[in-house]
Amino acid sequence: MKAIIRKELADHFGSTRFMLLMSLVFMISFLGVFLAGQGIREVLAGGGGYLLRDRTFLLLFTAPGAFMPLTAIMALFGPLVGLILGFDAINRERNQGTLSKILAQPVYRDEVILGKYLAGLITIGVLLTALFLILTGLGMTGVGLVPTIGELARLAIFWLMSVVYLGFWLGLAILASIAFRSVATSALAAAVVWILLGFFVPVLGQTAAAALTPLEDPARPRAEELAAYDHVSRLFSLASPPALFGEAAVIMLDPTHRGSEQALRLSTMSRLDRLLLNRFQGVLSVAQSLILAIPDLLVLIAFSLATFLGSYLVFVKQEVRSA
């Protein structure tokens, strides 16, 4: 399998496709962070003393600025990285007649897909490392902020989460490349799933929530109604990796964020409960944020495993012949 990983890595890093992809990711991310940084700089210049320690630097990644925050960019457009790296992983080999060459060597079929998956994951890891280092450097020099150890730890976990998240899309693209013999069809199928999970499911969740849990008085909704609405909407978001990643990312990068459920619970609490809770509230530690983000992460990992299992099951049943 090492041979497959090595070859795939050489293919990825030497390809024009990778260079274009990297340029695109860097441009969009740079734009997001630059505009967020501009906003922070203005606040700081205006005496924004309320900006919290262990949080200010991370605002570069979570503040929307005049564009989307980096977390949203990663959630919505990051999938393109995984999809582009994997949509022709197997069918290209099949179409150019090299799949039978590999499978005629002493390797199992799952080694081929696992090798390609791991190589893609390493490529994503390298790309994100470079991206994060550049954005961190940009934040330090452009805005004059130095990240604390806690912020760096959060960024490192966010990096790992991003790799897992893009890994899911990579796995999905590899599955499409196995299921469809035409490269164009597999690319299209992967794009359809991206739009479905990234845009359609969250909207569907909100529509279903509005239909199933209507508000009596939309101008003054009751707390219970809001809780029911959020519950239905959240159920749908469990089927949307971008929504899961988006929430986990915000929890991890914003030490005051406790997840939508917790925030809602707070709004529906009695005054006394809120008073009691306030004693323990404040900025969350890295470990506390991580614990809150873990459920979303676990579902993301489960999604990734499901794509790999699907790839394996489809691949082992397929005939080797290219024509």
Partner: peptide, 21 residues
Amino acid sequence: WPLEVKSSVGYLAENMGVYGD
């Protein structure tokens, strides 16, 4: 024993492709 067989058997497929790069 697919791996053992494939270790000792060479196969040149019809229309075998090459990695052009």
